[in-house]
């Protein structure tokens, strides 16, 4: 047991180290540097073209002219003390920048996870119950076709329809600018109002996966002997389906949810960009454009760590749900 634990921690640390190394070297392998940006992202943004002299000065100032391994060692050393470095673009600590934007991302990712899982499981169960009937066929075909639409395209369509034409939802942002709320309820409403379309887009991109997994696992599970046993006991359809079949079919869905959060952390970059939603996805995008190395590193690290944590949580939860595991 003790040995297992040690090797687990060792594996976790080595995974983390590899991620850190990739996070560090990958941005630096891209052409350009933070001080040679020549394009402006938004209209009206001032383009500062630095002279070669200024550029070298800043490179020296941020220590970017030193050998890579030296920079890496410094980065690792600072990381040990919890220092993620300073953002070159925002001119403030990377951790502050992340803390500013992370909550928005967490909001839409968690929201999308909950919504897509619940609706996927419900649809999957309905589909499995009506297997080979019309409703199952329609749902299956529809959702599979739907899954083929990339999430950013879906986001664009939703944005055009609901925000541009129907004007039901805002075009951008996470809150109404300069809003004056009468109490927290109104603030919460405003936040949900802004988060709605991004959450829907992300949910829809994951829905089909959950749906298919639930449906197919349920169909497999219902052929198992224990379902026959439950039927024989005359427990009634509802009990058989929910207590016996669904309970077992949800096990792989739980595992999937862990992976799903990882996939969504990547997908969120595009979705946030479409909706100009100020989460870390959009921040990452602008950091990449601006070659803001410390910020890129910081955000990638947060994403990586959150995926690791999710997987860890899923393992723990799975162990609780399935008594056959981890004893």
């Amino acid at each position: 047991m003790e040995k297992d634990r040690n090797s687990f921690i060792f594996r976790l640390l080595s995974t983390l180290f590899v991620i850190l190394a990739i996070n560090f070297f990958l941005p630096r392998m891209m052409p350009g540097d933070p001080f040679s940006t020549t394009s402006a992202d938004e209209v009206g943004e001032e383009i500062i073209v630095m002279t070669e002299e200024q550029r070298l000065y800043y490179l020296n100032y941020y220590g970017l002219d030193r050998p890579l391994y030296e920079q890496f060692l410094v980065y690792m050393k600072n990381l040990m003390t919890g220092d993620l470095g300073r953002s070159i673009y925002y001119k403030m600590p990377v951790s502050d920048v992340i803390m500013l934007h992370l909550p928005w991302t967490v909001l839409i990712v968690v929201g999308a996870t909950v919504i897509s899982t619940i609706s996927g499981v419900i649809l999957g169960t309905l589909s499995a119950k009506n297997r080979k009937k019309g409703s199952d066929r329609i749902m299956m075909t529809g959702l599979i076709a739907f899954a083929e639409i990339p999430s950013f395209l879906l986001g664009l369509i939703l944005l055009l329809v609901f925000s541009v034409y129907l004007r039901l939802f805002p075009l951008a942002g996470a809150v109404t600018p300069f809003a004056d709320y009468n109490g927290p309820a109104e603030q919460a409403w405003d936040i949900l109002y802004h988060a709605f379309l991004p959450i829907v887009t992300l949910s829809l991109s994951q829905l089909t996966g959950v749906y298919l997994l639930t449906r197919n696992t349920l169909i497999t599970v219902t052929t198992k002997d224990y379902i026959r046993t439950a039927r024989a006991k005359g427990l009634g359809e509802k009990t058989v389906w929910i207590r016996h079949a669904l309970r077992n079919a949800l096990l792989p869905v739980v595992t999937r949810t862990g992976f799903m959060i990882g996939i969504m952390m990547g997908g969120v970059v595009l979705v946030e960009s479409v909706f100009s939603y100020p989460g870390i996805g959009m921040t990452l995008r602008s950091a990449v454009v601006g070659r803001d190395y410390p910020l890129i590193q910081g955000i990638l690290l947060v994403i990586a760590v959150s995926i690791l944590v999710c997987n860890l949580l899923v393992d723990k939860i799975y162990g609780k749900l399935d008594p056959r595991v981890g004893i």
Binding site: K224, D225, Y226, R228, T229, A230, R231, A232, K233, G234, R243, H244, R247, N248, L251, L321, D322, P323, R324
Partner: peptide
């Protein structure tokens, strides 16, 4: 079922719900 007619199934690992 069960009140009048009950069946003892052949023992196998999956004859009972594994998570109950």
């Amino acid at each position: 079922r069960w009140k009048d007619i009950a069946i003892v199934f052949q023992n196998s690992l999956e004859v009972m719900n594994p998570v109950m």
